[in-house]
């Protein structure tokens, strides 16, 4: 076993360990927000479609998780996950950064233009979708 670079990190686990009493619960909430579930499931599905193998994915994810900026309580785990996915897909030439950025903004504009309570679709982007 090799020690990770952060091996001498003395941070206590207190912030990350659930409070007493919750430990027995076998069905804790898996994802904090729906986008985390989406990012997770998208990655699994792409892997099963043969676009990358799992060790390859683990390398990209690990690189993000080992950044100094990673939060000690693990709460930003899925943000790193999503960044890793974008980088892996970019390295494979399956997506490119400017297109992802443009489409991200398009989705945000579409959300803003969508009345609360109705489904957000890309066609609601007043700018007409990412050009």
């Amino acid at each position: 076993m090799t020690l990770p670079e952060t091996a001498k990190d003395p941070t206590p686990l207190a912030n990350a360990i659930p409070q007493p009493g919750s430990a027995k619960k076998l069905d804790p909430k898996v994802f904090d927000e729906p986008w985390q579930a989406q990012a997770f499931a998208l990655t699994v599905t792409l892997h099963e479609n043969g676009l990358f193998d799992w060790p390859e994915w683990a390398e990209f994810l690990s690189a993000e998780l080992h950044q100094d900026s990673a939060k000690q309580d693990g709460s930003d785990y899925y943000s790193h996950w999503l960044t890793a996915l974008e980088k892996l897909l970019t390295s494979k030439g399956l997506v490119d950064v400017p297109s992802v950025a443009a489409l991200t903004e398009s989705w945000k504009r579409a959300a803003h233009a969508t009345p609360h309570g109705t489904a957000i679709t890309l066609e609601n982007d007043p700018a007409g979708g990412a050009a």
């Binding site: 989406q38 999503l82 897909l89 297109s99 489409l103 991200t104 890309l122």
Partner: peptide, 10 residues
Amino acid sequence: AKVRALQTIL
């Protein structure tokens, strides 16, 4: 928004 963008492209 980013996860939606990635999925849209894929």
